[in-house]
Amino acid sequence: MSESKLPVSTIPALRFAFDRSLVIAFSCIILMLLGGALYSREFLSPEYLLQQLQISAFLGIIASGAMMVILIGHIDLSIPWTVTLGAMMATAVAGWFGETGNLLAIPVGVFCGAMVGLLNGLGVAYLRLPSMIFTLGMNAVVQGLMVLHTGGFAPQDHATDAMHFLAVGRPVFGIPNALLIWVAVGTLTIFLLTRTAFGRRVYAVGNREAAAYLSGVNTNAVIIWCFVLSGAAAAFAGVLLAGYSTKAYQAMGDPYLLPAIAAVVLGGTNILGGRGNYLGTIAGVILITLLQSILAVMQMPEAGRQIIYGVVILAMLLAYGRGEIDRK
């Protein structure tokens, strides 16, 4: 097929441009920045913006994985302890094996997360259990393992220099490394979703798994891979978070589950799967990070923060995330 015959809607860049949720999400970001600027000039300074992007990077990496799972119509609730697992295993390996351990730390952390994802995927694909309940169970199991790990073996919890460098270093034009890593992860995700057969299969499974199966897609493999990617992304973010705060600690992933899911959904991805693009997730991640930051800067007490946080998510979803009227 020649290029000129392609309908406009199949060219990704143009399709993004007319996506209503994207427009709303990005305008909300601009509105929040302007509103913040009225409160304090600092909100528009490059330093503040770069810092916000650096903090968003951790959430962004987690959300990339969460989005893969949401796109196939499932949900990964094991994210909190997978994040913690990644951080703890990376620091522990560094402690156990000295020099070699420092090299192995990051790959081992990510690998452990991928293994949790693999188990999630196997349970959801072959046992056909609802992902919500199975990943919840896995979350509890991983939590148990980590309690045993820290309590029984007293492993090292300091981050290695490499982890610290990846999370807070700014060697290239003062751009935070964490942000560069998010850009890399994001590019990879966009490539996977829009330029590979795997990406097409992800959307196909999300839209109607039976149809995808009948068209010859190995739907179980797609499900398993999505969960593996989600686990690996969460663990990788955990490794970076350990580098950011210089140590791994219990429950460090707990504050990331809701924001990650909220970011994906605010970005216009359908929670039932099959629809959504990564630009929206980027917007959602930045939006959530800015919202948290502004509420923190305004010294809003925790109670008010939670209420505003929930109300904003609901209001935005009511603006564009409403379902079709199901009357046929």
Binding site: I271, A303, I307, Y309, G310, L314, L317, L318, R322, G323
Partner: peptide
């Protein structure tokens, strides 16, 4: 009401309202 008239998914709706209810609980008893 949000699920029926707002036509949002129950999971995401109750995640968000859950944050609100927790905020109110914190407000009542810091």
């Amino acid at each position: 009401a949000i699920i029926v008239w707002g036509r949002l998914q129950p999971i995401i709706t109750t995640l968000a309202t859950g944050a609100v209810y927790y905020g109110i609980a914190l407000y009542v008893r810091p």
